[in-house]
Design a protein around this nucleic acid. Structure first.
Length: 946
DNA sequence: CAGCAGGGGGCGC
DNA sequence: CGCCCCCTGCTGG
């Protein structure tokens, strides 16, 4: 159950010094039918000491090719008898001795030492069968398999049957069933796809199938099968569909329906469609017509022959729907298109299988060779009548009923929990961590489920959730899998998603460069407008998680080998609500822990191994320590005598975990904590987001469609304003406009929402303008007799030193960069008003360097509730920092300023964005390049610099 | 008997 | 160095 969460340390000394940490990874040595535990780094056993069974494939090679050659080759492997005449091959060979499985399948948990193994394995998920036996037309996944299969024909037919089986060194053409097949060195004819299939057609199909659903019930389809097959009625439905597939597949072309991912409209993944599909099959041109999704016309001699229409839907490569395949087959698997000429052993009536434009046949194909089935099989099938057949039928129906969601049986498991297959425990007893055992469990459950489905097959498909649970028992108990219904801005949602990460992934990342499973799945492109707060939230949350992951990784790598492992003592736990988190209290002597830290908690499992999971420090309290004597201090710092050392205080940590099993059940269980990353920043952003959702301006942030919020830029100001408030000698025309507009905006007495954008390339007098704005504001206030004397301090000395609490709280305009808003001074001051943001005393916020703040960072100061927002910045300058490339590509780094600028640059005849064009910093020649490069030559240089 | 992974060799970039 | 092809052994249906 908890297999993937295990982080097992193998260590003779039971010490967990960093140096000695050994991460158990799991290799998939299927050849040995065993999941081997790879212990890094030492493995001093010599080959001769190993029993035969312990040899890996590589090491078994003395029997094989390695060593057959006399080692005249200059490059010799020092670990086995391999030698090569080229160094490159030796290097390649040495990978085989590596214990590092760096390549991971993207679709399952398997890992490989060599990329090509991995690629090949991944392609096996797709079930492509591109290799045809020229004799019996069976399709195979690999050429080697095909050739090996052909050996059977050779043995059966004997020599001289016209076909050269030895590597098929013949260019003869063979004629079979009237079809000429060019035999090019045994290479099977390749299936050439000329067009991809797309989604609308599949939707049409769904609609058609939906219409036919009622007729296409279990009985009717079974009846079809009866009439179709020439087997006796007794055998009908008793054969496995998957077995039949192999026979049926004798003249099949396969179309990979997975090429565009699973059928999941919700996620917007393109659904493949059979449309205008053309390929070559054994030198025959095969076309699917547009008018019927499943109609397949084989053009044999330049004519369409409708007798060849037929289609059948099969599961992947005709394989059984057993546990072995469930985890390998995401999404609907395969469509087999075929001719009616069935191979011997099963005859098909083409008419029965032909598909008309308005009906879809989803019948399974059954093997008429049922008489060969053993008595045992028959007995089994009697107990589970028409088991597989029905399963496939239901599978088909399921697609319909779920509106083309991925059939749950082929659903990819939710892999937040299953990325790393745990190191094994010994087989037997409660070996819930043992993969093989687990696989069997899955199979058993699946069979059981099938039986259940047979029972209810007439009525409806079984509950999707049930299927998933049975198919993919995850490491979490049922209650942990169900989403907890909380308000979406509860930051526990974020914490929960982080705490399910497996600590092993941090170590893996360095090699595999992979994010946690599905972490990037929901990362979507940021939009320019959002319909609701929830939309916005759902969009940005995956980015936040991804960024947190990147932060964790970066810190992990920086502190690699340096971070202390602190021993801790389990006190007690409080599992009042384990549907959300499990809470426990630990005592540590290490005072470096802070609230919001994420830690790795490792608890001894008693056999020298440790299980590990992430924990979050929810609270820290000091603890007096006469009882703490027994707590050993950091084993990293000192291994000797520390336990006797006296100390005065300790910390009592309140930890929460998503895996309640991970907390030790007893104080005696040895546990350690290791710092990973502080969630403080991300939680403050998260909470800021939630808080800003309550403010006035947020709706304009989400959907900046209302131009009225922008201060209209008037070009006419009173002569008095121009002279008194803004000295013509100090500012140019645009600057004066900017100052006067923003000052007007600030001084508007209503609480109407206002936004003003100022684009200011470098050197265009940003600071001057901001000061000018403030001066203008005060000047006006003075004129209006609304300014108290004390506020002059704010105007004249807005330096950072003066940003003290009283000053801040007396101002109603706050100005700074988003980074300064995040500084502790601001935070302390602002936190006093934060809880009352709706009645904020800050009416206006002036944000400089607005392009440097990501959208979420912009929202941080907004949580203090200003109704007016002035943003100044230059989108051409430094953009927000985004750690994750995925997020970066999805515009997570776009600033609100830039989004607003793009949206409001030209609204009707109003230019709502103030653009400063004159720079005062650089000589014309220097400014020339950036002007041309970035500012469309609109950046002028002040005449003094020319 | 076929699927699949491990492994070696050839070849082209 | 990566890709492709081929062969081989193990495994489970």
């Amino acid at each position: 159950m908890m297999d993937s969460l295990e982080y097992i340390l193998i260590s003779d000394t039971e010490s967990i010094d960093d140096d000695q940490q050994q991460i158990c990874t799991t290799s998939y040595d299927l050849a040995a039918n065993d999941v081997k535990t790879i212990i890094q780094p030492q493995d001093n056993e010599t080959a001769s000491e190993k029993s035969e069974k312990e040899y890996t494939n590589l090491e078994q090679s003395p029997k094989r090719t390695i060593g057959r050659k006399k080692s005249r080759n200059p490059y010799k492997c020092n670990k086995c008898k391999f030698s090569s005449k080229v160094e490159a091959k030796l290097l390649k060979h040495e990978i085989n001795h590596s214990k590092e499985y760096l390549f991971r399948c993207t679709m399952c948990e398997k890992r490989f030492r060599i990329k090509s193994y991995c690629d090949r394995h991944i392609s096996s998920h797709k079930g492509e069968r591109n290799h045809t036996c020229p004799v019996c037309k069976k399709f195979f996944t690999t050429k080697a398999n095909c050739q090996r299969h052909m050996e059977n024909h050779k043995e059966a037919a004997g020599p001289g049957n016209g076909y050269c089986h030895s590597a098929a060194h013949s260019n003869l053409t063979e004629e079979k069933d009237g079809i000429k097949i060019k035999n090019e060195h045994g290479a099977p004819p390749k299936v050439i796809k000329t067009k991809k299939i797309d989604r609308e057609r599949m939707i049409d199909i769904a609609a058609m199938e939906e219409n036919n659903k009622k007729e296409n019930t279990y009985e009717s389809r079974n009846f079809n099968s009866k009439r179709t097959l020439d087997g006796s009625e007794k055998n009908n439905g008793n054969k496995n569909t998957e077995q039949g597939a192999d026979d049926f597949g004798s003249f099949f072309a396969t179309i990979d329906m997975l090429s565009k991912g699973p059928l999941n409209l919700e996620n917007g993944i393109d659904v493949p469609r059979l449309d205008d599909f053309e390929f070559n099959l054994n030198n025959e041109k095969v076309i699917t017509s547009k008018s019927s999704a499943f109609e397949i016309v084989v053009d044999k001699e330049g004519k369409c022959n409708k007798n060849y229409q037929r289609v059948s839907k099969q599961n992947t490569s005709g394989a059984a729907l057993d546990g072995n395949h469930l985890d390998k087959t995401p999404g609907i698997s395969k469509y087999f298109l075929g001719k009616d000429k069935q191979a011997e052993g099963g005859k098909f009536d083409a008419n029965e299988f032909s598909i008309s434009n308005d009906s879809i046949l989803t019948s399974s194909v059954q093997n008429s060779n049922g008489s060969n089935a053993s008595e045992k099989q028959k007995a089994e099938q009697k107990q589970k009548p028409k088991l597989s057949s029905i399963s496939v039928e239901n599978f088909d129906m399921k697609i319909l009923n779920d509106s083309f969601l991925v059939p749950s049986k082929f659903d990819k498991p939710e892999r937040t929990d299953t990325r790393i297959v745990s190191p094994t425990q010994t087989e037997g007893k409660d070996s819930i961590f043992e993969n093989k055992f687990e696989a069997k469990t899955i199979k058993r459950k699946t069979k059981k489920e099938k039986q259940q489905k047979v029972g209810i097959g007439k009525e409806n498909v079984s509950n999707k959730n049930d299927v998933r649970q049975l198919s993919f028992p995850g490491p979490f108990p049922k209650k942990m899998e169900q989403p907890v219904r909380t308000q979406f801005w509860d930051h526990n949602n974020l914490i929960r998603k982080i705490l399910v990460w497996n600590p092993v992934w941090f170590d893996e990342y360095e090699k595999l460069k992979t994010t946690p499973p599905d972490i990037s799945k929901d990362v979507n492109h940021l939009l320019t407008a959002y319909e609701s707060r929830k939309d916005y939230f759902i969009t940005v949350l995956p980015h936040l998680i991804l960024e947190t992951w990147e932060s964790c990784i970066q810190e992990w790598q920086i502190l690699k080998g340096k971070r202390p492992v602190t021993k801790c003592v389990f006190c007690n736990r409080n599992d009042t609500d384990i549907s959300k988190f499990s809470h426990a209290y630990f005592t540590v002597k290490d005072h470096s822990f802070k609230k919001d830290d994420v830690l790795i908690l490792r608890s001894s499992t008693g056999d020298g191994k440790y299980k590990a999971s992430l924990c979050y420090i929810e609270d820290i309290t000091n603890k007096l320590l006469n009882i703490i004597k027994s707590i050993p201090t950091s084993c990293h710092a000192d291994n000797q005598g520390s336990s006797a050392e006296k100390c005065d205080t300790a910390l009592k940590l309140q930890l929460k975990s998503s895996h309640f099993e991970m907390f030790p059940s007893s104080k005696k269980i040895e546990s350690t904590l290791e710092f990973v990353h502080s969630l403080k920043d991300v939680l403050s952003i998260y909470d800021g987001l939630a808080t800003s959702f309550e403010t006035q301006l947020i709706r304009h942030v989400l959907k900046p469609g209302n131009i009225d919020i922008f201060k209209s830029i008037s070009t006419e100001h009173k002569e008095r304003d121009l002279n008194v408030l803004v000295n013509e000698n100090d500012f140019n025309a645009i600057q004066r406009t900017a100052i006067l507009n923003t000052a007007d905006m600030i001084l508007e007495r209503n609480i109407r929402n206002r936004v003003c954008l100022i684009r200011r390339p470098f050197g265009t007098g940003k600071t001057d303008i901001l000061i000018g704005i403030i001066k203008a504001v005060f000047q006006k206030e003075i004129e209006m007799n609304t300014l108290l004397k004390k506020r002059n301090e704010l105007t004249s000395q807005i330096s950072e030193e003066r940003l003290e609490k009283d000053v801040l709280l007396q101002g109603n305009v706050i100005c700074g960069t988003f980074k300064s808003f995040g500084e502790q001074l601001y935070l302390n001051v602002l936190s006093s008003v934060k809880n009352n943001c709706r009645k904020s005393i800050f009416t206006c916020m002036i944000m400089d360097e607005a392009q440097q703040a990501s959208e979420l960072e912009t929202l941080l100061p907004l949580q203090y509730g200003p109704s007016k927002l002035i943003m100044a910045g230059d989108p051409e300058q430094l953009a927000p920092t985004v750690k994750s490339k995925i997020s970066r590509d999805k515009s997570f780094g776009q600033s609100l300023f830039e989004r607003f600028c793009d949206h409001f640059r030209f609204q009707g005849d109003k230019n709502t964005v103030l653009v400063l064009k004159t720079q005062y910093r650089s000589h014309q020649e220097i400014a020339k390049f950036p002007s041309e490069m970035f500012y469309g030559r609109h950046l002028d240089t002040h005449r003094y610099l020319i």
